[in-house]
Simulated assay, not measured.
Amino acid sequence: MQSFPSSLLNGYRNFMSGRYVDERERYRSLAEEGQSPTTLVIACSDSRSAPETIFDAGPGELFVIRNVANMVPPHEPDGQFHATSAALEFGVKVLKVRDIVVMGHGRCGGIRAALDTTSAPLSDGDFIGKWMGLLKPATEQIQNNDVMTPAERQTALERISIRNSLNNLRSFPDIQMLEESGNLALHGAWFDISTGELWVMDAKTGDFTRPEV
């Protein structure tokens, strides 16, 4: 029987002697009263782009959904298993979040795989290939753009993916209704791993700009 990863145990010891000591009362309160985050973040599973770290969030402050390439599928109540949609439903209906942020990032492996059809696994039968198929129309347009460099194509699709996910969010009836009534706001953001820069999407134009911080 293999032992539990020592790096995780060491990290846990540091957590218990450090952050947990500082925030013990908050954890106890969260345990007794439950969570009530006002912001839901849909982020990539990439280990380099954790929203809690990027936004310096404490326990109970963010409800986070992470998957490959931070994507939201369209609303499909077909009786199948939909993890992202289920988490969205919980955040919107149960936690009643006020903001949803779709946050992409630079050098995303899922986006790179979508653009490079020679990468494995990317057949239609593989999980990654089928998942990234959500971006197929945009991917095909960018792949055929010879004016752009590979890095430019990658960044472009990373940001297009964010806009695509925001559009898919609006296919969920409850989300559309709450946004139209002013009780829910949808946002897009893109994080550059190499520089630490955060780019925020303009809701009207779709352009990404750096906010003043």
Score class of each variant (00 low, 15 high):
D207C: 09
W131D: 01
A120M: 12
D202P: 07
P74G: 04
D126C: 15
N145A: 03
G60K: 10
A69K: 10
A87L: 11
N183R: 14
V21T: 06
A87Y: 06
A189L: 02
F81P: 00
T118Y: 02
A114W: 06
T139N: 07
G106Y: 12
S49I: 12
E158M: 05
P211H: 04
S17Y: 02
R170G: 02
D174Y: 04
R48V: 03
F208D: 06
L95N: 11
I100S: 01
Q143P: 01
P51V: 14
N183E: 15
P73Q: 05
F81E: 10
E197L: 07
D174F: 01
H82N: 03
M1E: 14
S119R: 13
A156F: 06
E152N: 09
H105W: 14
V64K: 12
R66I: 14
R13M: 03
M16L: 12
L9I: 11
V41E: 00
T118R: 08
A113Q: 15
V97F: 09
K93E: 11
W131C: 06
I175A: 02
F15R: 02
E23D: 07
D99C: 01
F191C: 00
M71L: 15
V64Q: 08
V97D: 05
P37E: 14
M148S: 03
A69Q: 09
F63P: 12
D202Y: 07
I100V: 11
Q154C: 10
E140V: 13
W190E: 06
V68T: 14
S194Q: 15
V41W: 01
T118V: 01
P150V: 10
Q176H: 07
T209N: 11
A113S: 14
S7T: 09
S123H: 11
R19F: 06
K96H: 11
V41D: 00
G58S: 13
I160L: 10
A83R: 11
S85Q: 09
C44Y: 12
A57K: 04
V68D: 14
L157M: 09
R48Q: 06
R107K: 13
V21W: 01
G196A: 07
A57C: 13
R210G: 10
A69I: 06
G182N: 00
L184I: 05
R98M: 08
G104K: 05
E32W: 05
V94W: 09
T209I: 13
R24Y: 13
R98K: 15
G110K: 14
E25Y: 03
S17P: 01
V21Q: 01
P211W: 05
H105L: 08
E76K: 15
R159W: 00
G182T: 05
E61H: 04
P77S: 14
Q2A: 05
S119W: 13
H75G: 03
G110D: 14
G206S: 03
N168G: 07
V213E: 11
